[in-house]
Amino acid sequence: MDVFMKGLSKAKEGVVAAAEKTKQGVAEAAGKTKEGVLYVGSKTKEGVVHGVATVAEKTKEQVTNVGGAVVTGVTAVAQKTVEGAGSIAAATGFVKKDQLGKNEEGAPQEGILEDMPVDPDNEAYEMPSEEGYQDYEPEA
């Protein structure tokens, strides 16, 4: 019985440690998101679009440190934060509304985080759909 109880105690310690790591990862992701939003706020009209992409990228980098179902929630929060940063930029006159959601080359930025393969159960990952990809044929 002692062996059984000791095993359960060790398992509990492992769960607590994993929860603490997840909590730490979420806190880091939130900190990076805040950094990115402050970065966007300090940019001029020309830099705002690039700044919004930076927020998304920093958040995406930190999301990889967070495991399990938390990833889905962090990704949703990050996307809403990026959308909010863009709205703030438009409201303050840093950028025109028609410039939001495009990178410096004018290509749409939507789907940055949505296409990231995420499995809350950590069982399997699927690649994003290939609808947006084109076949590449090298020139002879």
Rank of each mutant, 00 (worst) to 15 (best):
E28S: 13
Q79T: 10
V71L: 04
T22A: 01
S9V: 07
A76K: 15
Q24A: 01
V37M: 11
N122A: 12
G25V: 15
T54V: 01
K58Q: 08
D135K: 09
Q109C: 13
P117A: 11
K60A: 10
V40G: 04
Y136V: 08
V118N: 14
D135P: 06
A140I: 00
A53Q: 12
G93Y: 04
E13F: 14
K45C: 06
N122L: 14
Q79A: 09
M5E: 01
Q79Y: 11
N103E: 04
V74S: 00
K21T: 07
G93M: 04
D119F: 15
K97P: 03
G106M: 06
A90D: 02
E130P: 10
K6E: 07
G31E: 01
A17V: 03
A29F: 06
D115T: 12
T54E: 01
G47F: 15
E13L: 05
V82N: 03
G41I: 11
P108F: 03
E139L: 07
A85T: 15
G101N: 03
N65R: 11
E57F: 12
Y125G: 14
K21L: 07
E35K: 06
E28N: 13
E126D: 06
V70Q: 00
K43L: 07
Q109M: 06
E126N: 15
H50Y: 08
I112E: 09
A89T: 11
G25H: 08
E105K: 03
E130Q: 03
E114A: 02
D121N: 08
A107Q: 11
P138G: 12
E123N: 14
D115F: 13
G47I: 11
K32C: 08
G84Y: 12
P117M: 08
T44E: 00
G132W: 02
S129A: 15
A140S: 13
G14M: 04
Y125L: 06
D119H: 15
K34M: 10
A90G: 06
V26M: 02
A140C: 15
T75E: 05
V16C: 13
A140V: 11
D135M: 02
P120K: 11
A56V: 12
M5L: 00
V55D: 00
K12H: 09
K6F: 03
K80G: 08
Y39H: 04
V71S: 12
E83L: 04
Q134G: 11
L38A: 05
P120C: 10
A18W: 15
E28W: 05
Q99I: 06
A140M: 09
G86W: 15
K96W: 06
A69Q: 14
T59S: 04
S9R: 14
A19F: 09
V48E: 00
E110W: 01
T33E: 00
G31K: 13
V49K: 14
V48P: 01
K45W: 11
D98E: 09
G86T: 10
K10L: 09
A76H: 14
Q99C: 09
V66C: 03
Q79W: 04
M127H: 04
A89S: 07
L113M: 05
G67Y: 14
Y133R: 03
V70F: 05
G36R: 14
A27F: 14
G67M: 06
G86S: 13
K32A: 04
G31W: 05
A53I: 09
A27M: 13
K23H: 13
T92Q: 00
E114M: 10
K58N: 09
V3I: 06
V37T: 02
A124G: 15
V37P: 00
K96C: 09
A27K: 15
V16G: 13
T54R: 10
G14V: 12
K6G: 01
I112V: 15
K23D: 01
A17S: 04
V3D: 02
N65G: 12
K34E: 04
S42W: 12
K45Q: 12
E131K: 10
A124E: 05
E57P: 01
E110R: 10
A11N: 01
T59K: 01
K10I: 14
G36L: 01
K80V: 10
L113K: 12
G67K: 11
G101R: 07
G93P: 10
A85I: 11
V48Y: 09
T44M: 07
Q99A: 05
Q24T: 14
G31L: 05
K102S: 00
I112M: 02
N103V: 03
G106H: 01
Q62V: 09
E105T: 12
V82T: 15
T59I: 13
A124T: 09
A124H: 09
K10V: 03
Y136C: 02
G68M: 08
S87Y: 11
M1L: 00
D115G: 14
V66F: 06
K32F: 03
A78Y: 10
G101A: 10
N122D: 10
Q99F: 11
D119Y: 05
G111M: 11
V48K: 00
Q62E: 12
G41N: 07
E61A: 02
A56L: 11
A89K: 09
A27G: 06
N122H: 08
T59Y: 14
A107F: 04
G73K: 12
G51I: 15
G106T: 12
E110M: 11
S9H: 04
A107W: 15
M127L: 01
I112G: 05
K60V: 06
T59G: 04
T22Q: 01
D2H: 15
L100F: 14
G132H: 13
S42P: 12
T44D: 00
A19E: 03
N65F: 07
V3N: 06
D98K: 14
Q62F: 11
D115Y: 07
K96H: 02
T72Q: 09
G31R: 09
V37W: 07
E104R: 00
Q24R: 06
T59E: 00
A76I: 13
G31S: 15
E139K: 11
A107M: 03
N103Q: 07
G31A: 03
A78S: 13
V16F: 14
G41V: 08
A91C: 07
Y39K: 11
K23F: 05
S129C: 07
A17C: 15
E83N: 11
G36I: 01
K23I: 00
S129D: 10
G7T: 14
K43E: 04
Y136T: 08
A56S: 10
G86C: 09
K23V: 03
V49F: 05
K23E: 01
A78H: 13
N65C: 05
E57N: 15
G93K: 15
M127T: 04
P120N: 09
V77R: 02
T64F: 04
A78V: 08
V77T: 05
A69H: 13
E13S: 14
K12P: 00
Y136I: 06
K80M: 06
T33L: 11
A124Q: 11
P128D: 11
E61Q: 06
V74E: 00
V48C: 07
V48R: 13
K10Q: 10
T72Y: 06
G36M: 13
L100A: 10
K12D: 00
T64H: 09
K12T: 02
E20A: 01
S87Q: 04
K80T: 03
K97M: 08
K43R: 05
V95H: 15
K6R: 11
T33G: 08
E46N: 14
A85P: 12
S87V: 04
D115P: 05
G106E: 08
D119A: 12
Q134D: 10
S129N: 07
F4W: 03
G47V: 14
Q24C: 02
E35N: 07
